[in-house]
Design a protein around this nucleic acid. Sequence first.
DNA 1: TGCGGTTCAATCTGTTCA
DNA 2: TGAACAGATTGAACCGCA
Lengths: 612, 612
Amino acid sequence: MYNGPGRKRPRLSIDQICSNVASSQLSQLEDSADSLLSRPLPVMITSFTSSSVTTAASFSVPPATHIPSTSEPPNEALNLSISNRSPSTSTTSLLHQPVAHQKVLQRGSWPQAALSPTKLQDYRSRRDSADSDPVGSTSAKLEDNIDEAGKERRRRQKLANKDNLFCQVCGDKANGYNFGAITCESCKAFFRRNAQKNKDLKCNFENNCKIDHFTRKFCTACRLAKCFSVSMKKEWILDEDALKKRKKLIRRPGNDKTPETPGDIDYSRLASVSAMSFPGAVVAPHLIGLHPLDPAHWAASAWSHSQSPDELIPLTDADRAVISTVMENHDMIVTVSPNSSAVTTPTLTPSTSLPQDLQETVDVIPPSKIKTEPELEPYVVVHPEEPPGEVNLDNDTESGKESNTEDTENSSTSTQQAVPTPSIHPDEVINMAEDFIKRLITFVKSLPEFSLLSRNDQVCLLKGGILETLVIRSAAVQSDSCSEETIDSPKSNNKLLKDMIRQHTKFITKLNQVAKWDKTTTTLCMLINLFSPLREGLIARESVANAAARYDLLLQSYLRSKYSSREVSSMYPELIATLDTVKSYGEQSSKQMYGVTPAELEPLMRDMFSMK
Amino acid sequence: MYNGPGRKRPRLSIDQICSNVASSQLSQLEDSADSLLSRPLPVMITSFTSSSVTTAASFSVPPATHIPSTSEPPNEALNLSISNRSPSTSTTSLLHQPVAHQKVLQRGSWPQAALSPTKLQDYRSRRDSADSDPVGSTSAKLEDNIDEAGKERRRRQKLANKDNLFCQVCGDKANGYNFGAITCESCKAFFRRNAQKNKDLKCNFENNCKIDHFTRKFCTACRLAKCFSVSMKKEWILDEDALKKRKKLIRRPGNDKTPETPGDIDYSRLASVSAMSFPGAVVAPHLIGLHPLDPAHWAASAWSHSQSPDELIPLTDADRAVISTVMENHDMIVTVSPNSSAVTTPTLTPSTSLPQDLQETVDVIPPSKIKTEPELEPYVVVHPEEPPGEVNLDNDTESGKESNTEDTENSSTSTQQAVPTPSIHPDEVINMAEDFIKRLITFVKSLPEFSLLSRNDQVCLLKGGILETLVIRSAAVQSDSCSEETIDSPKSNNKLLKDMIRQHTKFITKLNQVAKWDKTTTTLCMLINLFSPLREGLIARESVANAAARYDLLLQSYLRSKYSSREVSSMYPELIATLDTVKSYGEQSSKQMYGVTPAELEPLMRDMFSMK
DNA sequence: TGCGGTTCAATCTGTTCA
DNA sequence: TGAACAGATTGAACCGCA
Ligand SMILES: [Zn+2]
Ligand SMILES: [Zn+2]
Ligand SMILES: [Zn+2]
Ligand SMILES: [Zn+2]
């Protein structure tokens, strides 16, 4: 029996990663994550209209007292981080600022990602029209002539294409789209052979086998999963009937852009679906537990609008709102802007609070600060289990937590100068990492899709993806600043580390490039990646897949609102592909990180944690 | 000198190391070593004829009272091994088993690893007659008849065996010996198909792919390497000629079963050969106080044969015999195969017995279990001071010592599963270490060169080299398994320890690489290193140097029998060089080990002690 | 030309038989 | 231990419609 499965690379647990990175405290990330998760998260509510601008404003505003009681003293964690940066005094003072105002968060507004049945066709036809000359097929001669012009162009395109088209499943060289995703010949065949059969493939490992040129044949289960995860559509595999018909004769040409049998896919369904932002048809694959990044799904779910390829499609209000909220929260919680002093360090609070009781918690928060969105409902709808109208997040009343972000900031700014980064005590580096991760978790908790998950699943996602998230996020934050400095840091003599940093930089650069240095884009990518339904241990994979799908669609909509159809059609897949690389990258990083001393890590961490 | 990250740790004496490692008992390594040394070691003598079957049988036989009549019921050891496979209950129950029988095993029963050509033949014929009905051939019938008697017995044995025999390559269920190692059918076929072909298999990964039931087909290169590492002999694959002959006719079953050289091994020759295997000239350098590993000396003593550079120079029968004996003993005593449950814990037995009296002791041991080699004589000749004919080992009557090996085994084996290594109580770790060291010592004592030394010198060698030995040995045992697991162990948050583990892994990897994953090679290296004439306190440095030289030569011969002149000329020096690094490494390790808690050490120890 | 399907040779593996 | 065999997969090449 040739059951060739793949060689499985052990995936590091978050614990391991953390311990690697920071060696000590972080090692209990799981625990901390857990504890973090159990802590209430402040609900952020954004009024729609007020949205962006408002948010922006609030962003720079010092959170200061906000919240109620948090006049509390600076929290320890923060202090630590601060200390890192500014060795001396200034920092301390900053530290004293109350971290209180955490945030907001919306609940469910969902932009609807258009996916209508027509999309695919749309996509294709658009594509066709764009690239290939629709010249009549009848007169070849004419065509020749006419084509002449476009010929070269086309050729070039094609060339360009083929040369840098890589299989979304295994990374091998790809020819073009197959079943909805850019894949190589082998994955195409593989998918056709297996997607439909119901034989339950079983992964002999952890269901997270890496799939690449070498390993693809190791684990059919994961390979297939990956296929679905990139949204390959098994529905596109011609069934017997279709085949028969096909062979016999091709009648009404109208129907069949897709090889599907006429009656097959009822694209009309999609419409309604899209309304729901989660069309069953498209969702299916995700339910299977795949991760949402799919060009394929993308292609399929292309925009329903039959807009001209160059017209931008404005975001729906809902989408816009969601995006701004997310970004706002992200900026508030995670980003430590070097300049703006208004720091938001939602780090955990030692507060004794509680939990699951959302509504109430929400109330606790000063209405003025709460940010909520009308669109929430729809989202909630998606998750009927949830009580609509309110965020299902734990509310964080915050505790005395202070953000040392300030310090960080200070130091960073001050550090900006030529002055070589002051030596930081290893322990501090650790603290910084810990602190940052906490913030990141807080941010993630602000996402309803995340907070609605069971604690278990939340932990699973974090364990599995925190590092990747950090990596991606670092791109989202300091698009350009990292590279040089980080790399040049005279501190690291450690070869491995240097390589890592270089690789990191390379990745960041690549991602930023593909994302055109758009922070929103990178942030969305980060989220899409966060919600990887294949993470080990997940239970509600479906929910995760849904979340991923949601952000995926959001990203598409966002892109489409900013770039032309043409641009998006190349940009989106590239993003997905790039994003995919982070997986192996992260894994590798954590491995390499192993044994690196905290001190050596500092520069990289500064970068990853966006501390300057 | 590894001056890695930071802090220097005071240098520890072996006692200290031990105490650190194990904290208590081990600390008196010197003492214990001494005591161990003074204890008689069971002489293992194997009659050639009785060989395989017998041995196999004895192998599985409960050591229990050992001695003579082993009409004993199922032995515990077996149970243990079985338990490995079945995680749950069995294990626990096993644990509850009285510790008494633990040690059982060893003592003299020698499973025979198909070493001698005769054995192989034996095996074959037996197998044939037993399992497959040699319907046709005339001789077969005769055989049948003859065999009749032993048939049933054999069958039973085999069965018993089969149940707890696991492939040394992939851990799958094994049938018995194939090409010199216990392997499953598939690995057998795999080996036959690939071992001889010179197509250069290339590992797509890191050359340390884990090989198990699921992963074995992932990397042929590593699988093959693993095969070699467990000493599978490609020479045993019938070559064309042999095949032809074989096909033509099966006459005297005696002659050609093995591809081995016609006359097979003339054991009688061994004497003289081994006597020569120690040319005075070569010894010289060592006397000067050099340690045996030096390229220089090597180059000088190159093989006198003026063979063509690409021709392999078969080992002399003597050398082959010695090597197999050594390896066999090593495997039996020291190696705790993660898969093979049949555990060999030659640890000391609680018996009260006695001592220095060798001859007598020997008698005490069930002849069937004792393995001895004709070759010993010659060796003895080298050390005329010793009474020839008998092994100069102390016989081990065992003290009240119990080995917790059992526990160890259990936990280890059960650990195999995905289950994260179960936490082992620190004390157990200590015990494991102690136990392991004891076993190692037992093994070392089985080397005439060692046991012939004065007690003082023996202790000196052990004190000076036990750690290094452990390190090297870990490479010899689990070529590939250590790295990942050990490193990933979430347990160790201790930075230093991690560095150590990493370094350890690095070293092991390097050594294995240089040694091409050949266990015999690494084992010989270990021995060469053990006999370092420069150890502090040594008196008979000359003898030690001789021993080193001997193994050095043996290594060279061995290499030359396996690789081309060209290969060896680069390989050997590399081995020596690599080996040399272990010194500083070990030193460093002991320094670092300082202060590490036993619990933290567990993973490293598991690795070093090859407990899974 | 893109992207469905189809075919088929080539590998390997592992079991069974001799 | 070898030989033979039956499978299992894979992936490249190709076919054909729109
Ligand atoms: Zn592919
Ligand atoms: Zn898998
Ligand atoms: Zn095997
Ligand atoms: Zn390999």
